[in-house]
Nucleic acid binder design. Sequence first.
DNA 1: CGGGTCGGGTCAAAGGTCCA
DNA 2: TTGGACCTTTGACCCGACCC
Lengths: 403, 403
Amino acid sequence: MSETDSIAPRRGKAEAKQTVLCKVCGDRASGKHYGVLTCDGCRGFFKRSIRRDLAYQCKESNSCPIDVARRNQCQACRLKKCFEVRMNRDAVQHERAPRTNQYKHCTNEEIRSKTLKRKQVNFEHSNQDIATNATHVAPKKEKVLDSPTTPEPGYYGNSPPRFLVGYVTPESPKGGTVSVAMTAAITPPHTPQHRQQMPFQMIYLGSPEMLHESAVRILFMTVKWVRNIPTFFELPFRDQAILLEEGWSELFILSIAQWNLPVEISTLMAAAGVSPQPNESVERVICGMAEIKALKNIVERFRAADIDQTEYACLKAVVLFKPGTRGLRAPHHVEQLQDQAQSMLGEYDRQSYPSQQVRFGRLLLMLPALKEVSSKCIEQMFFRGTLDTIPMERLLSDMFKSA
Amino acid sequence: MSETDSIAPRRGKAEAKQTVLCKVCGDRASGKHYGVLTCDGCRGFFKRSIRRDLAYQCKESNSCPIDVARRNQCQACRLKKCFEVRMNRDAVQHERAPRTNQYKHCTNEEIRSKTLKRKQVNFEHSNQDIATNATHVAPKKEKVLDSPTTPEPGYYGNSPPRFLVGYVTPESPKGGTVSVAMTAAITPPHTPQHRQQMPFQMIYLGSPEMLHESAVRILFMTVKWVRNIPTFFELPFRDQAILLEEGWSELFILSIAQWNLPVEISTLMAAAGVSPQPNESVERVICGMAEIKALKNIVERFRAADIDQTEYACLKAVVLFKPGTRGLRAPHHVEQLQDQAQSMLGEYDRQSYPSQQVRFGRLLLMLPALKEVSSKCIEQMFFRGTLDTIPMERLLSDMFKSA
DNA sequence: CGGGTCGGGTCAAAGGTCCA
DNA sequence: TTGGACCTTTGACCCGACCC
C-alpha cells in the first residue's frame, strides 16, 4: 500500500462505489497499468501493440471516438488515445518464457487445494498434452485399438512367437517408431486406451468384502496379460514360471496404479493386519500400517507420473523380463526381451513426449519403488483369505494354465 | 515495480558511493540476502522458489544469460545462478503467519484468496526457526570473512565452486555432448579414467585384517565424491543427510564394482556372519551366506556390463538423488538433479556407444539390484568392527564433515 | 539509543493463459 | 487472431529482531 495518497482503486465488484474509469475508453478500470488507470482490455491492447511493435492505420481521419462501445472499431485511434493519456510504453516488458507447468510436489493434501485453486490448469495440462501429441498419439492409439481386427499384413497372423522379434521396425512407415505389433501384443486386446477407465467389472478394492475376490481378479488379468505376450512362450517353461513368481506382485501394483483402483488404508488394514490370527504371529513378514502406507504412496507416485497405457504395457514387460533373476535357464533371452521392451518404451516416449526428454529415464527409475513392498506383504494384504489353503505359486500356476 | 509509472525505470537517484551490484543479475544490490549480495528481486525470487520447492524448466540449454534486463526470461537459469553464487537455501525460513497488523476491510474474494494462498502458517515457529537459523548463521560469518578478499572482479575468485554449472555445455567440442566439466565434477579429481585401475592404496577387501579399514576407506571416498558434486549443496542440509543415509550402501556397492575390488566369500563370511556373537542373535537382520553370495553376484553383473567411469559417475548420481525418499523437504529439487544425472548418462551413451541403443536403459535397469542386499547387511558385512560403538549415521555424518 | 543488516511480509502492477 | 476476464509472479517498500 505504497500509494495511499491517491484514491485507492479498490475494485469493488458488485456495487456502484466510486468506480474508477478507464482513462482510455471509460470502461471500469481494473487498476493502474503502464502508468494510467485503465481497464484490462486497454491494458492488453496496449501491451500487445507495444510488444509486437504494431503500426495501425486509421481508415478515417485519425479522430475516431474511443469509448467502451467503440474502442474496437479503430485500433489506430485506440492506441493514439493510449499515448494521449500518457500510457508509458517503457513499462511494457519483454515477453517472458511461457509459464511452465510448475509442478511442485503434489502429494497428499496439497493436491487438493491445488485442484481447487486452479481447475483450468488441469484442463490446460491435458489440452497441452493433446496439442503436443496430436500428430502422433492419435494415430498410434487408433492402431493399437484396431490391431486385433487389423492383421497388419506382415506381422500379425497367428499366435505364436515370431512377430515380436524386430521391436524397432525400420520399415515402419514414418521412420523408426514403435512397432505396432509389439504394442498390440503387449497391450491386452480389450484394454481401454484412455485413463481413468475401469476395465474390469466387479472390482472394487475399497470394499472389504470384495477385496479378496477383486484382488484375485486383478491377478488373473495380470496373468492373462502375461500370456498375451507371444514372446513369453519363447522362454523355457521353467523360466516362465520363475519370472511370473518373481514379478507378480510388482505387476499387481502396476495394475492397481494403471487402472486407478483405490487403495484404502482402512480397508487394507481390516483385511490384512489387524485381525490377530494365532498362526500369523509365527510368520516373519507381517504387513503393518507402514507397508500399507508405503503401497499407497507408491501407487500415488505412479499416478502422479501420468503414465499412459502404452507406457504401462512396456513397463510391465520390463518388470516381467528380469534377466538378473536367479535360476533362469535362458537369462540371455530374457535380457533380450527386456531390451525390446525398454527400447520400445524409449522410442515411444521420444515420439509421443518429445518435450519431456527425461521421461523415459524417469519411468525406468520408478520401477525400484515397486519392490518397496515385498510380495509377501502384498500376499498378506490382498490374498490372505484366498491363500489359507493355496500357496501363491500354486495360485499363479493355476491361473496361468487356465488363463 | 511501482517506480515504473512516472519516473524513469532506472532508480539511479543519487548514485553516490560505489553501488554494490547483485551477484545474480547485476542490478543494484539492496544488501546481503541468504548469504549473498543481491537485489530485492533476486532475493524475493529465491525465497519464493525455495519456499515452494519450485522446479523450473529451461526452454533452452540451461545457460541463459542472467542480467537485470533478462533475469525474468528464464526462471530455471535464474535459480541456477542463485545457487551458483552460493545463495543458501537453508537460510530461507518457513512462511510465517500473515502480519497481525490490524487489517482493514477486505473484500470477501480477497479474503478467500488470501486464505487459500497461505495455508500452512501458524505452526512452526521459533523452535524451527532457531534450528534453521543455526545453520545459516555460520556461513554469514564466513562470507564476512572472505568478502574483504573478494573485491568483486568477477563473482568468485578463490573457491572452486564453478565448474559444474552447465552440465550439458553447448560449447563442448563435439557439439551437444556431455559436459566434461560435469563429468569431472562428478568424478573424483584424482580418479583414474581408465578401468581396472585401483585408485586407492591400501585397499584390499580380500584380506580379513584389512577388510574393515578398507571398507571405511571406500566409504570415505564415496562420501568425498558426494561432496564433490556442487549441486548437492543446493539441497537443504537435512535432505543431504537423508540422501546420504539412504544411498550409501548402494553407492558403496557401486564403488566396489567400479574399482574392481575383490569380493571374497570366505573373507566376508569370516568377518561378518559366522562368528556367533551373543548379541547378534537378537538383531533381526542377520547377514548370511545368501546375502554374501547375492552381493558377489550383483558386483559380477555390474562388472560384466563393462561400465565406464563416466557411466559410473552418472549412475552414482542417479542413485544418490532419489526423489522418492521419504522425508525430503525439497523432493522436487532432488528429482531435478536426478533428471540431470540420468539425462547426462543417456546423452553420453548415445554419443559414446551409438551402436548399443539399449545400453542406457540397461544401466538404469541394473540399479534395483543394488537393493537386493540391504544396507543393514552391508553394514554387518563390512563395518561390524568399526561400528561396535559408532552407529552408521554417525559415521557418515563425521565423514561428511571431514571429507 | 540510534542506525545498519537481514530475516520476515505486502500488494500494485508487471506477467501469463485461454475461451469466446 | 484479438479481446479481456482472471490468475500468478515480481519487486519496491515496510516491519522488527538483533547487533553493534
